[in-house]
Design a protein around this nucleic acid. Structure first.
Lengths: 336, 336
DNA sequence: CCGAGTTGTGACATCGTTGTCCAGGACCAC
DNA sequence: GTGGTCCTGGACAACGATGTCACAACTCGG
């Protein structure tokens, strides 16, 4: 296998010194046109590829790489987020690494260690750990961190969140306003902070209307399939709910599919937290209370780049709004 | 801002030589337990983070980083692909960079140059260029490339594809079998190779049944919104199509939304190429002819890792199957 | 108690690049 | 012709790490 050409090889072929090649490659300017042409030709001839890692090592520059750590890259929320982050990064010549944490603490620590070992400049993370104080020394050493979806714990870092409690309360109140009093909650794993917040919002809305919390109407599941099962069980209760608040996009998808398979899409109301790309296509359309993941992404990467540009104010928490879009499923009224 | 500790600092604190620290960090074994403990303690105390880039530079090891270049990371197809690639990579301690090309040749070349400059080990790519011969010298230097969705041109590299012509022909034939003769095609930008292939399959199916190609029924659009517009136009023709073959997931989504808004979901048949996560939720469910992106991803990364493990057979082309899933929209019969 | 073999440790060069600094030629004014 | 400035080019060390090799300090058989 052919070895890669280095600056030394280029210099030898062009008959100049190593440093002159470096000057040409970095466009430092102070090289005569004649020599510059010779160097450029030699580089092309040898298919020279500048080694960015070596360059960064020597020059002490930033690596121009950042990471995005989310729960699940295949979730459409994360996919849109990644796209938004990548677009902003690319405009600045920054590359993006990404990974899925699946809410596993060990995986977060392992991936973070790997990324920091590669000396990336910063990271946008939807944390899986409950405490991120282990990152404090790295942040002190200039590593930029922005949390999304959840505020940092034990770490001073910027974050971009939505008001999950308020949003869930609003979504649940929407169902109550349409006459429901038996409202089920289908949410994510209760260990997840956002799931706890959304449950709290759900409970607040109920108690604000004097509705007692019924334990059997509160369900959780981590996957679409799991949510389908929970909804099937809910609807076969003796006294089934007349409405469902699905606190996450996978829960909403599962609930909607279950309702459709049971032929109850038009009978049981459904409001989902988070957007679903094809929410409009379902029949009835699925009412959602959504945040805009592209906005979250661009705001988060903006905060990150600010820090890399030397911003040193105290950490900021940006709370983005959520919007309720009525499409039909959330406006179904309870039977008589 | 605190500078990061280096091995030199750790060595000084532990009172040993640099090389001994290196031995401990790399677990080379031949260090006495006593010294090893001192080194470990010093490393923790200084929050030492091993510099992987410097280590790779010196040792000449691979970087254990690969890239995934797709058209659009926010497309659910790409998101699932990325997730599958990441999962396999993570099991081997390999990190994944990703980027969207948006079918722009310049962006492909720019991103590839950046990634190769970072000395990543290999790349899985849905190419935007029509000719990838510019990569040949890098492949010769040990850079592994696997193409997905499209075969490489001007480059010997492995690829993972589906038979687009055959798939499109099968999808179109499905509509013909249900009695349609005026079948519209809504596809991606005609410069995209897969769009050309799928159009060819569409035409083959028509001519196999003696149906003349009608130019005005052949449309293309790059986005969901564009596809919606095309479908709206198609249905307001004097002699509108009774069925639509949407040759890509964004086209399918656009077509389905347009049909729903026009109240024609149950009147005009629709078959889409590629899966849509909520295809089942639409009313009627959307009939699709799909490939499995997770499978494409794991097969592609498998080929890539094989090459990195030294596999040197001639390039392979793996053709994966597509499956037609009837959900209702593709089985609508034409009026009268 | 010696010589051979085994272990553990460190000095040094090196990976591919860039920052620093100096040499020397061209040019100008005097 | 001299002295100063400007510009270009190159020697050298360094970034943070590891491979090579040499050399102490052991062990152990005889």
């Amino acid at each position: 296998m052919a070895e890669r050409a280095t600056m030394r090889d280029v210099a030898a072929l062009a008959g100049v010194s190593l440093k002159t090649v470096s000057r040409v490659v970095n466009n430092e300017g102070s090289v005569s046109p004649d020599l510059e042409a010779r160097v450029t030709r030699a580089a092309e001839q040898l298919r020279y590829r500048h080694n960015i890692a070596a360059s960064n090592l020597r020059s002490g520059q930033r690596s121009r790489a950042v990471a995005l750590l989310v729960q699940d890259l295949s979730n459409e929320y994360s996919a849109i987020l990644l796209r938004a982050v990548s677009d902003v990064a690319r405009d600045r010549g920054i590359v993006v690494l990404s990974a899925s944490l699946d809410e596993e603490e060990g995986r977060e620590r392992e991936l973070v260690a790997n990324f920091i070992g590669r000396r990336i400049d910063g990271m946008i993370m939807m944390p899986a750990t409950t405490d991120q104080s282990y990152l404090q020394p790295d942040v002190a050493a200039g590593f930029a961190v922005v949390m999304i979806d959840r505020e940092p714990r034990g770490l001073s870092a910027d974050s971009v969140v939505v008001d999950n409690v308020e949003g869930a309360e609003r979504a649940t109140a929407h169902l109550i306003r349409h006459g429901h009093r038996r409202i089920a909650l289908v949410s994510d794993d209760p260990r997840v902070v956002t799931a706890q917040d959304r449950r709290q919002g759900y409970e607040r809305a109920l108690s604000a209307s004097g509705i007692a919390l019924e334990r059997q109407l509160v369900r959780s599941a981590r996957t679409v399939g799991g949510s389908m099962d929970q909804v099937r069980e809910l609807l076969s209760l003796d006294d089934p709910p007349t409405a469902i608040f699905a606190a996450r996009n996978t829960s909403t998808a599962g609930a909607a599919i279950s309702l459709k398979r049971m032929g109850k899409s038009h009978l049981v109301a459904l409001v989902g937290f988070d957007e679903l790309q094809l929410a409009e296509l379902a029949d009835p359309g699925i009412t959602t209370l959504a945040q805009d993941p592209a906005h979250v992404g661009s705001v988060a990467v903006g905060l990150l780049l600010d820090r890399l540009d030397g911003q040193s104010e105290p950490p900021r928490v940006l709370t983005l709004p959520t919007a309720l879009t009525a499409r039909g499923s959330g406006e179904i009224r309870p039977p008589d």
